[in-house]
């Protein structure tokens, strides 16, 4: 009967607080992760939104190529119009 008493009291006064303490620690840590992960998700969405203009780079590429082609055409015309530098100048 004495061991029965001791076992019951140990379960109530020692095991139960330890279980509560450990479970509470797990819960606190899990809850602390939630805002961090939400912040990461927000930042990732913002980063994705920042790249919305990235497809315009294709237009920029096309415009740059056309501009270079026009400059090359002007350069070709200038090459015809202007005399070359004299040797030694």
């Amino acid at each position: 009967m004495t061991l029965y008493w001791i076992g019951s009291l140990v379960l109530l006064l020692v095991v139960f607080p330890i279980v509560v303490y450990l479970l509470n620690g797990v819960l606190v840590e899990a809850r602390s992760i939630v805002p961090t992960v939400r912040h990461i998700a927000h930042v990732a969405r913002a980063g994705s939104a920042d790249l919305d203009a990235a497809p315009l780079l294709l237009t920029t590429q096309d415009q740059a190529i056309r501009t270079i082609e026009n400059v090359a055409a002007y350069g070709g015309s200038l090459d015809v119009i202007l005399d070359d530098a004299r040797q030694g100048s």
Binding site: M1, Y4, W5, G7, S8, L9, L11, L12, V15, F16, V19, V20, L23
Partner: peptide, 16 residues
Amino acid sequence: PGVILLVAVVLIVLAL
């Protein structure tokens, strides 16, 4: 002691 044991078990289960 049986009541105490039962209460302890119930509390642990509720906490879990």
